[in-house]
Design a protein around this nucleic acid. Sequence first.
RNA 1: CGGGAUGUGGCUCAGUCUGGUAGAGCACGUCGUUCGGGACGACGGGGUCGGAGGUUCAAAUCCUCUCAUCCCGACCA
Length: 569
Amino acid sequence: MRYSQSLIPTLKENPAEAEVASHRLLLRAGYIRKLTAGIYTYLPLGLAAVRKVEHIVREEMNRAGAQELLMPMVQPADLWHETGRYEKYGPELLRFVDRHDRESCLGPTHEEVITDLVRREIRSYRDLPKNLYQIQTKFRDEIRPRFGLMRGREFIMKDAYSFDVDDVQAGESYQRMYDAYKKIFTRCGLDFRPVEADSGTIGGSFSHEFMVLADTGEDTLVICSSCDYAANSEKAEVKAPQADESPLLELTKVETPGKRKVPVVCEFMEIEPHELVKTMVYKADEEYIAVLVRGDREVQEVKLKNHLGVVDVEMATDKEVYDATGVPTGYLGPIDITIKLLVDQEVAAMRNFVCGANEKNFHVKNVNMGRDFEPAAVADLRQITASDPCPVCGAALGMKEGIEVGHVFKLGTGYSTAMNAVFKDSNGQDKPMVMGCYGIGVSRIVAAAIEQNHDENGMAFPMPLAPMQVILLNLGLKDEKITKTAESLYLELQEKGVDVLLDDRDERPGSKFKDADLLGIPLRVTVGKRLTKDGVVELRQRKDGATEELAPEMVAARIVELINAAMID
RNA sequence: CGGGAUGUGGCUCAGUCUGGUAGAGCACGUCGUUCGGGACGACGGGGUCGGAGGUUCAAAUCCUCUCAUCCCGACCA
């Protein structure tokens, strides 16, 4: 590719709209341009980087026995009604009607379409298993798109779906995808972790996320310092504590005028937040639920949602709390509460704690579960903290930020049952197919790779994802020898299958160096004065600045050597 | 959706508080010098000040509405 003929509109200054590194640099380096919120055009280099990711994903998916196909982006609402997701999916699903008044939507994911296809085409256990995937543009009308390619509304995703005869076979499919994903992210040159995850709206019973470690990540991971336990913090189980065996003390009501917040109540009553229990009210679909957690803990809404098996939970407003319980916020407690009560397992192990009295301006102390109130259920409902022990081995946990680039789910038979995707088993019986689904955020990987690989001068792509492997600078356009050498090197590298960008622009050397750094191309070859003076060209690595001077005829072989060493198989 | 902020040549911003008829740097065009880490000089082109309405002799500036974008929280590849 010739720079002079390409469209690589680099920016000298940081665009005002971008905060995080990948977003800022993708714009500055002329990889992407925004069309509207969360929707981007991929310019030649941006697209080239996406293609590199796609290439690796394709190879490993094919190697794992999956077949590529391509499904439509526009989908009929009818299909979504079959699984009930037309109602459940919420406003993220962009819906519209066509000229015939047919309800349609833009595909945010393709379980319905693939299941429809498979139920029509697959009859027998002899046709299974199948694993089908596509790489395609998805549309999700995100509430808040942000950070450029990290969370767009329109994005490129690889989604795969497996169909098996039973749980055992489905487990094998899942494991094959899990292994393929590890391979894919390793080959991309990313520092990542597979973690246990919540299965979210897609549904299903078991799942792992693949997280690229980066400070700008939107997820928090807990990682055990000793064993190999790692989980998304919203999913991470909290180990149940030892039950307190202290003798039960007498229940006592205390007047606490105007004391509503945990720290205020604690100060007033001269106790620590861990001796207090707070009562949080949530709106779970249409029902109000009270949840008890220790004063210094947070309710983990995902856990609550899963425990209740509801679509949505959100914290009730002060007014809703009052309307539902007749008690103003700040004085709520479990005793004689009028709505459904759930108790975090940690609270269940406490004795003689303080909580609201369900009466304005009063709290009670020495409250004990079993004696003073009975909950509907006890469960693990709180957010894990860094000071919690590993739920598996008990060792200390560490917390890290991560970007989710892949997600694998065991779906079970939910979709196949809802959509009647059945096959005949060896006894001639109809059975629902056992499904799995597996996503990779292709465009997000590009952003994640930049988050992990950049410095103050620009990006520094890992070789496998770099849109171009070499940038070749001609610093003497008017010098015959320099230009001839640069041009013949350009041809030679192309013949050897190297992706090379020839900077043949009529620009000053300084601009070319600055742009080369910004673009993040791993290898840079400079043909300039050193050639006329000493007969050498310079080869420099973007990441560490390692520089070598070589005779022009040695360069191509050296580059091939460096590329081969940097590619991961 | 709640909270915060911003919209002024292609880009980054000043000007807004205190109304007086739009400015800098970069980019762009021409010419000259320069040419291995974002050169310099001269000349030049380019802006309905996000949009609509209002107040005023006069609005980028004040008021109302509206649109868009970005950042912080609940969703997800």
